[in-house]
């Protein structure tokens, strides 16, 4: 397995407080990994550190094989706030994913159009390609932003709480889609979520964040009563019912 992303003993301080310490894990090519943890655990912080938007206080973040860079990194943020009046169609948002950093006006070409349409199709957003993006629903915007992140064929795709705005059906569709991207396109997918259950069918690796620390491995290794009790520092029970995992605070 080629690690596309490797964190070694990463620590993060924010506002004088140690938010995360000693975070180590790798995500390989074609692997599907999820950062799971309660609100305020540090999931967004961890993703921003990987993107290089937040400095670390310790350790290092290595992207790409032997640190050669992971090529393009796709990113979908947690809070998507798009002005409802902005003159951009879903189509244009995806096109910006292709060449939004370049200077000058875009040069329309057949290849460009096909790439954009393919990305919209991949996320099931072709039906509203021409709609003003600010007028789409939260879940629809989510898909458009995933297409924006995908269109440049990144090797590493980071998504912060991509399931937060979705109904059950869309949730399943997005999870299936992301799983497929990891398998078929060999993209390393790393996303965050507060509920691991929708991800159980596709998740290769869990990065469980709580109490400023992480536990990582397969779900069976990490999500156990003993393991999470150690992580949280107080008694926690893990129940498995009908293929679902429920984590409850013990007493």
């Amino acid at each position: 397995m080629f690690p596309l992303l490797q964190l070694d003993g990463v620590g993060v301080r924010l506002g004088g407080r140690q938010v995360l310490s000693d975070v180590s894990f790798t995500v390989g090519k074609g692997e599907f990994a999820a950062i799971i943890g309660p609100n305020g655990a540090g999931k967004t912080t961890l993703i921003r550190v990987i993107l290089g938007l937040r400095p670390t206080s310790a350790g290092r973040v290595i992207k790409g094989v032997n640190g050669a860079g992971a090529g393009r990194v796709g990113y979908v943020p947690q809070k998507i706030v798009i002005d409802s009046d902005i003159p951009l169609r879903a189509w244009d948002v995806v096109a910006l994913g292709l060449d939004g950093h370049k200077l000058g006006f875009p040069f329309p070409s057949r290849r460009r159009r096909e790439q954009v349409e393919q990305a919209l199709q991949d996320v099931g957003a072709l039906g509203y390609a021409d709609a003003r993006v600010g007028e789409l629903s939260g879940g629809e915007q989510q898909r458009v932003l995933i297409a924006h992140a995908l269109v440049s064929r990144p090797q590493l795709l980071l998504l912060d709480e991509p399931l937060a705005n979705l109904d059950l059906r869309s949730e399943q569709e997005i999870v299936t889609l992301l799983g497929k991207l990891a398998r078929e396109h060999e993209i390393a997918v790393l996303l965050s979520a507060h509920d691991m259950n929708p991800l159980l069918p596709v998740m290769d690796r869990i990065i469980y964040v709580a109490n400023g620390k992480v536990a990582t491995g397969s779900t069976d290794e990490v999500v156990t009563s003993e393991g999470l009790t150690r992580l949280y520092g107080h008694p926690v029970d893990v129940l498995r019912v009908r293929g679902r995992v429920v984590v409850v605070a013990g007493d």
């Binding site: 290089g52 943020p77 798009i82 924006h148």
Partner: peptide, 9 residues
């Protein structure tokens, strides 16, 4: 349109 995404890029 998307300052956070732009920054990450």
């Amino acid at each position: 349109a998307m300052p956070e995404v732009a920054e990450a890029r």
